[in-house]
Computed example of a mutant assay.
Amino acid sequence: MSSVLFYEKPGCLSNAKQKALLTSLGHRLSVRNLLAEPWTVERLRPFFGVLPVREWFNPTAPRIKQGEVLPETLDEPTALALMVEDPLLIRRPLIESEYGMGCGFESGPLLAALGVAIAVDQDLQSCSRSGPDPRCDLPTDGAAA
């Protein structure tokens, strides 16, 4: 199939499911740590395409859950500056392939081109952990998933 650059948060269970699906379809993955990448505004912006700014954000990021960052109130330059400063805010995964770039793992042109068919009742985007504090979006310290 194709080579896919896949930016994840190491230990994220949802990202693990997404990678397994892409690999099962024959794609060769090059996996990178989203939180350790030296992001710049120019490098990050293409992943979001025509999505509204509010959809660029990871809704489970601590700063969003605590109300410190309100994605629906942000303009593009402010949103990008915040994400470069704090990559936990970025909706993941970020995917880059010969078919284009994108964020998140929901049905759309990029995943369709990669041969990913997501059933209507299948959620491969949301946090796979349950409970009031899934701890998925804490900074990585080796223990948080």
Rank of each mutant, 00 (worst) to 15 (best):
P52W: 07
Y7L: 03
P134T: 10
C103Q: 02
R92W: 07
P38I: 11
K65H: 12
A112R: 03
L94T: 01
D133Y: 14
E72T: 11
I118E: 00
R32Q: 09
E55L: 13
R63M: 13
K9V: 13
N15D: 15
C12N: 03
S107M: 04
Q125T: 04
R129Y: 06
L124F: 07
R43P: 14
A145G: 06
A16P: 05
I64V: 15
L138E: 10
I118Y: 03
P38D: 05
L22Y: 02
N58C: 10
Q122I: 08
S3I: 14
M83A: 06
S107V: 01
G67A: 08
E37S: 09
W56Q: 04
V41P: 08
M101H: 08
G108W: 00
F48V: 02
E68T: 07
A36D: 03
E96R: 05
L74M: 08
T23K: 13
S97H: 02
E8I: 05
R63F: 10
D137R: 01
S128N: 11
I90V: 12
T40M: 07
S128V: 08
L111H: 00
E68A: 12
L5I: 15
L89Q: 02
E37I: 10
A117K: 15
L138I: 11
C127L: 14
P134H: 10
Y99G: 01
N15Q: 05
L29E: 01
L124S: 06
G100E: 01
R92N: 09
A79S: 06
I90A: 03
P77Q: 07
F105V: 01
R43S: 14
A16F: 08
L5S: 05
P77F: 04
Y99N: 01
V120N: 12
E8M: 10
A16S: 13
D123H: 11
E72D: 07
T60G: 06
D141I: 13
V4R: 00
C12Q: 05
G67S: 12
S128C: 12
T78E: 11
